[in-house]
C-alpha cells in the first residue's frame, strides 16, 4: 500500500500469534479505524519497555528488584512452584490454587532448539536452593520429553542430596470433563497418575 504501512505490517507479522491477516487487521485498526488510540498504545509500550524487568529472585515480570509475588510477605517462601514461562505463572495465579512463591525458568531443556542449562533461569534457582529456605519444589513443567528431562536435571543437578521434597504436578482429566470425551493420551496420564481414594 504505502512504504510506511508495509513496514508496520512487516513488524507486526514478526510478533507471535500474528499471521498476515491478523497483522493487517491490527495495522488497519491503528492507522485507519482508531488512529487516536496509537498515541496511548505507543506510550504504554514505551512505559512497559522501560519499567518491566525480570524479578531477581524468581524471574517473573517485575517493576522493581522483586516482583509483587516475591515481595508479598504472606507468601510461603519455603514452597516453590517451578514453571516454564510467565504465562504459566499467570494461569496458575488465576486459578487461585497456589499461595506460595514461584520460579520461572523461561524455557525448558531442548538441545534441538539450542536451549541448554545456561539459557534457563537455573542460577537464581540454585541460589534459592542453596540458601536453605526451600523445603519443597513443585515442578509444573510440560508433560513432554523436554519437560521431563528438565525435571530430571533439576532433581539431579540442583537439588541433589538436599532434604527438599520434589513433586510433579498431576496430569489428567479436565475439571468437569467426563471420561468418554477425553483423548487417549490424557486418559493414560490420568490412569498412570491415579491416587488412593480417601
Amino acid at each position: 500500500m504505502t512504504p510506511a504501512y508495509d513496514s508496520l505490517l512487516q513488524q507486526l507479522k514478526r510478533l507471535p500469534g500474528l499471521g498476515y491477516r491478523s497483522a493487517e487487521r491490527v495495522a488497519m485498526h491503528l492507522l485507519v479505524e482508531q488512529p487516536d488510540a496509537m498515541a496511548d498504545l505507543l506510550q504504554a509500550m514505551r512505559g512497559a519497555r522501560d519499567a518491566v524487568r525480570r524479578c531477581q529472585n524468581c524471574g517473573n515480570m517485575a517493576e522493581s528488584e522483586l516482583c509483587a509475588i516475591c515481595d508479598d510477605a504472606n507468601r510461603d517462601v519455603g514452597t516453590i512452584c517451578v514453571v516454564e514461562h510467565v504465562p504459566d505463572l499467570i494461569a496458575i495465579e488465576r486459578s487461585s490454587a497456589w499461595k506460595s512463591q514461584y520460579h520461572v525458568l523461561h524455557g525448558k531443556l531442548s538441545p534441538i532448539h539450542g536451549v541448554g542449562p545456561e539459557q534457563l533461569n537455573f542460577q537464581s534457582l540454585q541460589h534459592r536452593i542453596q540458601s536453605g529456605e526451600i523445603n519443597e519444589l513443585v515442578l509444573a513443567l510440560s508433560n513432554d520429553i523436554e519437560g521431563q528431562a528438565t525435571c530430571h536435571y533439576i532433581q539431579e543437578e540442583l537439588v541433589q542430596e538436599r532434604l527438599i521434597k520434589v513433586s510433579r504436578i498431576g496430569f489428567g482429566l479436565p475439571s468437569g470433563g467426563g471420561v468418554t470425551y477425553a483423548d487417549s493420551v490424557t486418559l493414560r496420564s490420568a490412569l498412570e497418575g491415579r491416587r488412593i481414594y480417601e
Partner: peptide, 9 residues
C-alpha cells in the same frame, strides 16, 4: 548432566 537428563527419559 544434560545427557543423563534425556537418557533417563
Amino acid at each position: 548432566a544434560e545427557l543423563s537428563a534425556f537418557e533417563a527419559e
